[in-house]
Write a protein that binds this DNA or RNA. Structure first.
Lengths: 287, 287
DNA sequence: AGAAAATTCATTCAATTCGATCATTCTACT
DNA sequence: AGTAGAATGATCGAATTGAATGAATTTTCT
């Protein structure tokens, strides 16, 4: 834990503007040190003292332990993934939430957030789990926390325009990974699509029924695991044919889709990343 | 989402003058925090608490970030289940959301909301699905919508007190129904517990590991389906023994727990409804 | 070590909120 | 009907807040 904090960190942690915080420092409400150049530095103990004596609420506790740079730089993003992983494994939902929100509010697109922070974090969590470094409940708890946060981020997206095209999607039966279809849904919503996520374990037949019922312009399919390749490909072909019949595009993605499997498949777009999905969807919408 | 609101925002939202609102704050009718400069800040959860308990109408929901038509109509909890079912089957998420919020703001406890509206609605949806009246995707979409709304309601609960006891829970492997453990989590949080939901498909061993790691005071187990009774009971007994070893209570619930099966089980409490769970948890907390 | 990028500085300015006071409306009781 | 007491809404000057500015400082790279 860091000892000295910048005014910005403290301002964010207690939920006031930097200007007000500095005024409080100058009024002596907070113990303040100064660098040789005149910049304020606030010892953590003094901040805690202030919180105790003034009764001021602590809005964002996680910031007090976090590095100050919340930007878009590569290193920042990498560190964010590690941080997210640690917070998720520890079940520190507040910390994870505030870090994710920071990244979003600092202008990172949701699809990039998913690609560069959340997906890597869960890849690592998956690794930890396979190597027995963490328990299953930690992985499940992490999913719950992340899902909650994603749902909250969804609320922060701008309202859809009336002419937003419809996309439906999810994962076929046998695929238990709920997060990636939610991430795909969010990426599409961010790109202006009315994306409906059906979740995991959707039989192909009901996908086809949905295609004819709600007539989407796009079907997104998240493929995290394929228990048995040959029948899966057959099922996919059924879906693809149904989509083509109603003029819907099909985008597939997910780490189970190896190059070999993809060679067998016919699709409108294969998306390596959620960013790919978003750009593809934007292009499709324009046409 | 804004955590803290200014008196002006709240005054506009509930349709009274700022002067009156400030008097109410000073009389303790609304939970109020103050900035170092003496300005009032009102946490959203406290405002909602006030609205729910006082029955005061909500004039301008948009200010609080709520759906635009909450607080408008008289929503009776009796017909609500049917309405919710229709909206969920149709994928009308906004409609479902605003109706659920209405019920919440009208002072209905979350556990009652789950018991009297959401659970019946999903029972009916399950029936419709079994009789082929709706497609699988409609049921899954309904789950997604409901889960999102539950997560949103979670944000509206007042902050946990520092001494809130810890509860963990979820559903054992083989149980696919995610909603009920989330409802249990919410009911417990409303009752002042720091409830952590691990979700579905938790192996018994990792439950035991969690018991020794995080040392909860309560384990809640949601049982919607039991694929094979005898081994399930064995697994449960392992869990129960581990809980007893660390002094944790065990509450079970769910429609798969028939009377026959319950006779075989040893537990601290069997909860027919989420209301039962809440009252049991409150009693346990008091001791 | 040096340059570029990011952060923080002090200050100003418009908007908001403070506490207090006053006229009006509502309610309960005789 | 009449009145006392309480709650409401409006208004006031003083104080607080948050955003923006250009200059100075710190951090992060090469």
């Amino acid at each position: 834990m860091r000892e000295l904090l910048t005014p910005r960190q403290v301002a964010q942690a207690i939920g006031v503007s930097e200007a007000s915080l500095k005024r409080w420092c100058d009024r002596g409400l907070l113990l303040t040190q100064k660098t040789a150049g005149g910049h304020r530095r606030l010892p953590l103990s003094g901040v805690l003292e202030f919180l105790r004596t003034s009764g001021h609420p602590l809005i964002d506790p996680a910031v007090l332990g976090l590095p100050s740079n919340v930007g878009k730089g590569e290193t920042v993003i990498n560190r964010a993934a590690e941080h997210a992983q640690r917070a998720l494994e520890a079940g520190a939902d507040e910390e994870f939430r505030s870090e994710t929100f920071n990244l979003f509010l600092n202008g990172n697109a949701l699809c990039d957030l998913c690609d560069k922070v959340l997906a890597p974090a869960f890849r690592n969590i998956g690794n930890s789990w396979e190597h027995g470094r963490i328990e299953v409940f930690q992985e499940r708890r992490a999913c719950e926390i992340c899902l909650r946060t994603l749902h909250e981020l969804r609320l922060m997206l701008p309202a859809l325009s009336a002419d937003a095209p419809l996309a439906i999607g999810g994962a076929l039966s046998g695929d238990p990974y709920v997060l990636s279809s939610t991430m795909a849904e969010l990426s599409l919503r961010e790109a202006g699509w009315r994306a409906e996520n059906f979740g995991v374990g959707i039989p192909v037949e009901t996908f086809c029924a949905a295609l004819t019922t709600v007539k989407p312009k796009l079907v997104f399919l998240s493929v995290s695991t394929i228990p048995d390749v040959a029948p899966w490909i057959e099922r996919y072909k059924t879906l693809r044919a149904a989509a083509t019949a109603v003029g819907a595009a099909v985008s597939v993605g997910g780490r189970a889709l190896t190059e070999e499997i993809r060679r067998e498949l016919d699709y409108t777009a294969y998306c390596d990343t959620f960013r790919h999905l978003a750009t593809f969807a934007t292009a499709l919408r324009a046409s």
